[in-house]
Nucleic acid binder design. Structure first.
Lengths: 260, 260
DNA sequence: CGGTATTTTGAGTATCGTCAAGGCCAGTGG
DNA sequence: CCACTGGCCTTGACGATACTCAAAATACCG
């Protein structure tokens, strides 16, 4: 269905799932990593599939290995609203906590690394540093949510779209998904349809389309296809969405190792 | 200066600071509560005073005892943008973490309960359940941030303002600050100036003013003073901002005791 | 190659931002 | 005590932007 432009790749192995992808876990003690590895499962979802239903208490805690998940709220009347995106390395799930407040759906074909929740919580009890890692990840996610709030508070649709592109651009750069051929302009793939993007940015699909082409007319981006965007002037995009110095804050630069 | 309408009250004692106000801490073991109590300090801030400067690494972790803190980002050119409000019971500060991404300022006269950071972290090491409490609080805050995102994604200023009122209304209900004389309509105090509100909701002060009076013309609210609003039809407000069933989700109802 | 969903474009209307002016309140100084 | 001042809220008029409805163009899929 939608978004078949993602390249499929069938899973990865479990070891890769832990050490390489869960950035905050990379510094854990070897024995703990081994324990995590032994309970990890790799799951694959096609674009459009539901990963977590709103209101249910899922039996696993997970992290995105590859692809993008959209976190959304579905209303009784069928409307749905996206409140966040999870990219490679982001954790989700609620340790010590009840049902999910939002549902999650694969925006692209996605591979996730899942840990059975009860066993994960047992590990937390045994290894306090694991809880600390979870806590840091949630703090990180909080920063990201606030970053979206800054983007959403821009008046013009064009500015909100620019903010969306900047965030996507930077986050993808962090996970090394961005084409950075140095001399070449970065190119990003939009993981959402115009309709979803409109919901997310508080606008209508038509306005999103017009905003894309307005940015293109000003030579800030180039629309290769509706989903493949070449960034021609990132600084200009950053300037128009109010994320000027956000590049230097936690959500972008904070990728530390846990001190211990 | 601004917002002198808050009633001043000089501090409370330290015991009240912990047991009664930090809702998530109320279920901790008595010995841990005693330990927390022994390191707690009560601080008072006048409306407009800075509590935490952006970028600094403060030496304490805290929680709001009374009043409202606004969390904001200040830009080099002087513009500032509010990304959240902290009311009674909300924790702030970054355990195991670096500098603050945002600054905090007292929106009203505010009393906070502060714990020296290093000593608080020592307690966490000794009492794992304390870290769990911190984690739950942050998860709660994450839900609140996403709730704001839903509000901000509304198209019309009137809808975003309605959402703001609903959130304020419910949160204040939780902290028992709301006049609930049963037969009487609830009444809330706006902790922000029209200018700050405009920044927060992505609009201009003039539009905020017009939105207030539009809601008043439709008999959904009554403007007693620019800062004292009587809610005439809460259901209507909820319906127009897309928070219909949010009343049943974590951000509103989740006030559990930690199971143990 | 046809059918469907999505994106794009266009024209008209509603809403919001902008600029300007007026009113209200508090604090100040004569 | 009163006039003055400054800040904030409010109101009005006009231009810019976005939403609505409709239709055309494009992409996708069998």
């Amino acid at each position: 269905m939608l978004l078949k432009r993602q390249n499929e790749r069938v899973t990865g192995n479990v070891k890769r799932c832990i050490a390489a992808d869960l950035r905050v876990m990379s510094s854990l003690q070897p024995e703990l990593l081994t324990a995590l590895q032994s309970i990890a499962r790799t799951l694959h979802f096609e674009a459009g599939q539901a990963v977590v239903h709103e209101g249910e208490r899922p039996n696993y805690v997970g992290a995105v290995t590859e692809g993008i998940l959209k976190m959304q709220k579905t209303f009784p009347d069928g409307r749905e609203h996206i409140v966040g995106l999870l990219v490679e390395g982001d954790m989700f799930g609620r340790v010590h906590h009840g049902a999910h407040t939002f549902s999650m759906e694969a925006a692209t074909n996605t591979t996730i690394c899942a840990f059975p929740r009860t066993r994960f919580e047992s590990l937390i009890d045994a290894w306090p540093e694991l809880e600390q890692v979870v806590l840091l990840d949630i703090l990180d996610e909080l920063d990201r949510a606030r970053e979206w709030m800054l983007v959403l508070a821009n008046h013009r649709t064009t500015e909100r779209l620019a903010g969306f592109l900047v965030v996507l651009c930077r986050r993808w750069a962090n996970v090394a998904k961005l084409q950075n051929n140095d001399e070449q302009n970065p190119e990003i793939q939009i993981p959402l349809s115009r309709r979803d993007l409109a919901h997310f940015l508080g606008a209508r699909p038509e306005s999103i389309s017009r905003a894309f082409h307005a940015l293109a007319d000003d030579l800030h981006i180039r629309i290769k296809t509706p989903y493949d965007i070449e960034i021609l002037d990132l600084q200009e995009l950053i300037g128009m969405c109010g994320l000027e110095d956000f590049a230097e804050t936690a959500a972008f630069e904070y990728r530390p190792s846990v001190s211990r």
